[in-house]
Design a protein around this nucleic acid. Sequence first.
DNA 1: CAAAAAAAAGTAACCGGTTACATTGGCGAT
DNA 2: ATCGCCAATGTAACCGGTTACTTTTTTTTG
Lengths: 336, 336
Amino acid sequence: MSTILDVCKLAGVSKATVSRVINGIGQVKPSTRENVFSAMKELGYRPNRLAQALATNKTHTIGLVVSDFDGIHFGLLLKQAAASAEFAKKQLIVTDGHNDPDYEYEVILQLEAQCDAVVLYSRTLTDEHIQRLHEQLTIPIVVLNRNMPEQCFHSVSFEQEAAVTIMMDHLFEKGHQKIACITGHMGNPTGKARLNGYKNSLQAASIDFKDELVKHGVYDMKSGYQACKELLNEGITFTAIVAFNDCMALGALKALTEAGIKVPEQVSITGIDNDPVSEFFTPRLTTVKLPITDMTKQAIELAITLCDETKPTHSYQYKGQLIERESVASVYTANN
Amino acid sequence: MSTILDVCKLAGVSKATVSRVINGIGQVKPSTRENVFSAMKELGYRPNRLAQALATNKTHTIGLVVSDFDGIHFGLLLKQAAASAEFAKKQLIVTDGHNDPDYEYEVILQLEAQCDAVVLYSRTLTDEHIQRLHEQLTIPIVVLNRNMPEQCFHSVSFEQEAAVTIMMDHLFEKGHQKIACITGHMGNPTGKARLNGYKNSLQAASIDFKDELVKHGVYDMKSGYQACKELLNEGITFTAIVAFNDCMALGALKALTEAGIKVPEQVSITGIDNDPVSEFFTPRLTTVKLPITDMTKQAIELAITLCDETKPTHSYQYKGQLIERESVASVYTANN
DNA sequence: CAAAAAAAAGTAACCGGTTACATTGGCGAT
DNA sequence: ATCGCCAATGTAACCGGTTACTTTTTTTTG
C-alpha cells in the first residue's frame, strides 16, 4: 500500500500539500493539485484512516454494540443503523458482547479510540455497568431500547410496560379473563417492566394474578414452544396467551397446533415486536409494534450529532402500537 | 483519556519501559513493573489501539463484509463469526455494502488499513470486482459462500447446484413430476447454479423444462408469497414447489394456505438453508441444510490464520444435506 | 576487586497522516 | 526599484504508540 510519501515523491511536493489536496482545504495551485491527483491515481493511493484518525482525533465512525448477534430486532436494527450511518458518511462498526456483561463492558472500552460515539443496545449490562461506562468514556453513549433510571443519558427507549398493557386491554375487550403469560429474561429492566404491565393490567381489571399462568422464556421460538407445552401439560385453563415477543408467541402457536388446539378459536395468542415473520404464520399474529427502525434511526442520528457537538442529554421515548391480525378471537364468539 | 505519557510521568519511566510492561516483552525489573501497573490502574489507562495498529501494522481485527444486513444467513453467520473471532482474541468488524456493488467495493478498500484480513460474503459483487480487489488489497481475502471461477482465492463455498439436485431427487422419489421453481436473484452465481441444478435434474429425469413453472423471487418471504400467487393465478398445475431458500418456501406456504390448498397433501414445498424458523411453521419445512455455521467458522479461522502467515490458496467446499420434515408428501398418497 | 556479561532503562526514529507556522515568490501599488 | 501583500508551498511538531539501538546499572565471574 502506498503512503502519502510515495505521492509526495511522485508529485514532487511536500506532505502538507498532498494533505491539502486530499482534504480540499487551504490554497493549492490548480496545476499542482492536478499533479497530486494524478500521482494519487497512478499509485492507487488511499489515505490510511488509522493515521488520519490518530492525527485528528476524529474517526468518523460510530460504534454499535449489541449484547448478542442473535438479538431479537437484530436484522432491522442493523439495517437501519447501516443506512443512517452511510447517509451521514460515517463508518459503522458493529460488535457483540457474547451475552457476557464483562466481555461487553471490555468491548465498549476498547471502542473508545476507534469511534466518535457509541450506540448501546444491551440486554446484559446492568444499569451500574452503563453508569460506569458513562463516567469512564470520553466519547458519548446513546442507550437504545432501555429505560435508564436517571436522566443523565442520551437514550432512545420504548414504553415497555405500556406495550403489554395495550395488549391486555385488547384481550379484555375481546372478553378474555384467563390470560397466560410467557415472559422473557427476568434479569433485565425490559422483562420486569413488561411483567409489571401484565400484573397491573390484571389488577386494573380486578382479576387475580395467578402464578401458574406465568412461564418464563428467553425470547426465542423454542422457549415459547416449551413454555406453552408446560402450560398445557399442567392442565391449566386459559383462553389467551400474552407472549413478551413475537418469536415466543409463534413458538407457542406451534405447541398449540401440535396439541390440536385451534388458534384463535380455542386460544388466542399475542406477541410484541411486529417481527416481519409474524405475518407469514397462519393465523397471522396480532402484536404490538415496536418501532425498532425508527428508534434505531433516532439513536444513530443522535450519536452522529454528538460526534461534532456536545448536547444536553436527550431522551426519546416511543410507544407501542396495536397491530390486529387474526390470532385473537373474541371469547364470546369462541363459546357460541 | 490518558496516554502512555501520563503513565510515564506517574511511574517515572520512559515510554519504552511502559510499552514493555504493556506488552509483557523485554526485561523489566519487577518493582518497576509494579509501579507501571499501578500507574496504569490509577489513570484507568488503556492503550490506544489505533496508535498500536499504526506502529505495528497489525490491527488484530478481522473485517467481515456482507452485501446487506438482512442477508439470509445473517444471524447465524454473525454469531459464529463473532464467536470464532473472540476465541482467537481478534476484534471483528462487520460492515455491509447496502446491496450496492460500488459502495461495497469502496467499503472493502477502506477496510484495508483497519483489518489484517477480510471475509467477504457478497451477493452483489461480480467476480471481476472480487478479482480486482484481490489484486489491489495487500491483506488477504477469504470469499465465503461463493464459488470463484479460478483457484486463486481462499474460499469456503457450498455446492449450490447439488443442493437443488438433492431436493429434486427427493421429490422425484416421492413421485413428483410437475415441479415448480421459485428462484432467487439471477444476477449472481448462486442463483444461476441453483437454476442449473433444477434444469439438469429435470433433464436427467427426462422431464421437459417449462418456463411457466419458474418464478423469480429475491430470497425473502414476500417474494416467495408473490411468486406462488402468480403460479396459482396463472392456473398452472404442479404438485411440488422447489424454492431456492426457506424464506421463499415459507412465503409460498402462506400463499397456498390462503388459497385453501393443503400442504403437503395437495402440494409439497421445499426450501434450502434450514433456517431456524422453518421448524416452527406448520407443516415443518423439508429443506436442504446449508451448514452456514460450519462454513463461517472455517472462513473466519482461515482468515485468522492468514493474518500471521501466508498460505497457498485454499478452498473448502461444503455439501448440502437433506432434512426431511413434513412439507413433502408422496404424490401417490396424495392421489389415493 | 576489576572486567565481562546480563539486566534494566532510556533515546530517538518510525508508523502515516494533520496542521500551525515559516518561507518563498510573484504581482500591483507607489 | 521598493515595499507590501497574498497565494503557494514547505518545515517540523504532533497524534500515541513500538522498537532497534544505546547507555546505564547490576550481577557474575575469574
